[in-house]
């Protein structure tokens, strides 16, 4: 009975969506705002990667909200998982090969992550993507050596200060320019590493925050994994 109702629901939803899809102007978007942004963004923001220009410029407050959501999820995960009991059982560490491999990968992942963050305004990438790669470096360590623990205090300092840095850059623009998160510092030469004003700084703040956030969630989950003795 319940399955029948669910199937009816899904069938109805599929029919509705397909009926809509058949009428959508797909493949020839109106690009009302998009075209305008493509035209003015190179001059207004000065980032070669126009997706980053929209992400950190035109829709900067969205990005701040997004950071806040990730932070809220990490904080809520902390609330749910709480502190580990001191005498809880721990997973055994991985073998020699795994640990050596993890140690080898760790610095490489850090470098790649930082590179992706630093070039976010020029090439595909940016704070979120690079931050995830940074977090992955810590995931590798946690998975290979479950007995080693990340320091939660350090993580909370990094995520707190990086998030605050993003907002403070925005507030600086508010005081200086009258607009929260308005681009500052001049645009520089398009396509160079030091260009596009405050965008690379914002990218860096995002990258550190995302990396700390995800590494923190992973550390919490890994510590909660072993059931209490």
């Amino acid at each position: 009975m319940r399955n029948l109702a669910s199937l009816l629901f899904a069938g109805g939803l599929a029919f509705l969506l397909l009926a809509i899809a058949s009428q959508l102007a797909f493949g020839t978007p109106s690009m009302r705002v998009g075209a305008e942004i493509l035209a003015v963004a190179p001059d207004e923001v000065g980032a070669a990667n126009l997706v980053t220009a929209v992400l950190l410029g035109y829709r900067g407050i969205d990005t701040l909200g997004e950071l806040a959501i990730l932070f809220a999820a990490a904080t809520a995960a902390g609330v749910v998982l709480g502190r580990r009991h001191a005498n809880a059982r721990r997973d055994p560490p991985g073998g020699e090969v795994l640990r050596t491999g993890a140690d080898l990968l760790f610095p490489l992942l850090l470098v790649v992550g930082l590179y992706v963050i630093a070039h976010g305004h020029l090439t595909p990438g940016g704070g979120f993507q690079g931050g995830v790669i940074l977090a992955a470096a810590f995931f590798v360590i946690i998975l290979a050596q479950p007995t080693r623990h990340l320091r939660h205090s350090l993580i909370s300092w990094i995520e707190g200060l990086a998030g605050a840095a993003f907002i403070l850059i925005g507030l600086w623009a508010l005081v200086e320019d009258g607009d929260f998160l308005a681009p500052l510092l001049g645009q520089g030469a398009m396509g160079e590493l030091l260009s596009a004003g405050t965008l690379p700084l914002l990218s860096l703040a995002i990258g550190l925050k995302v990396g700390a956030e995800l590494a923190g969630i992973m550390a919490h989950i890994a510590e909660a994994e072993a059931p209490d003795a």
Partner: peptide, 29 residues
């Protein structure tokens, strides 16, 4: 500028609590 309320300050009721939330855990330490 702070005393003469500027329209730009309309973001503050959203942004200030976010700033506080980000700094809460380090501050508690």
């Amino acid at each position: 500028r702070l005393l003469a309320a500027d329209v730009g300050y309309l973001v503050l009721p959203v942004v200030l609590p976010l700033l506080g939330a980000f700094l809460m855990q380090p501050l508690a330490r």
